[in-house]
Amino acid sequence: MSALELKNVRKAFGKNEVLKDISLGVERGDVCCIIGPSGSGKSTILRAINRLVLIDAGTIVVDGLSVTDPTVRDVDLRRKVGMVFQQFNLFPHMTAQENVTLGPRKVLNLPKDEADERAVKLLAKVGLADKAASRPAQLSGGQQQRVAIARALAMEPALMLFDEATSALDPEITGEVLAVMKQLAAEHTTMVCVTHEMGFAREVATDVVFMDGGLIVESAPPDEFFGAPKMERTKSFLSKVL
């Protein structure tokens, strides 16, 4: 069973077709990096996977659970899928630790001490053991994003989605977030990353997917993708970003 399977997925916002027949598979432990210009539909794919966006046609299956089956409850799907946002979206009225324990306590119904224990471990994992009691406003962007990663991991999801997780960060602190993401990849966390970090994609991706205009133009392992891209559109995009 694949960790993620998209078949013939279509989505339009009004007359604007943002996903035109997308099919994509991600195996357990794989890291799929989706790259492409703005407006190509990359983020919409991620948001469709956890139902933040409902698709018009096609099927999506996450770890055996059908996203497109209306009898599948949101909560059961979202427990399986962790999401990290470009703007972090930490809850500003809660401490870092409370951000991380909210899901486990209120969705998984873990007792407080168990949720706290989990949060402490995860904050240590992302290098923020000493920031548990800090509010988001007291943290740098890179620290906030690492808390957000810990928050998503606390649900022990089968799949992690990263929506341009480093795009809102200063170049010099993207490294600390990428380091955490690389560590997760090394631990065989199944990940789908929409990213502009070509170095990251080349280093950790199992597959690189290039999207443009709501279509997957080309998809290949990173050596092949960056070394010998087949499509003209891919070549011209890579020549601009590399």
Partner: peptide
């Protein structure tokens, strides 16, 4: 983004 992040955690 606040609502989305909370929804993504599975909160109703």
């Amino acid at each position: 983004g606040q609502t989305e992040a909370a929804a993504a955690l599975g909160l109703n």
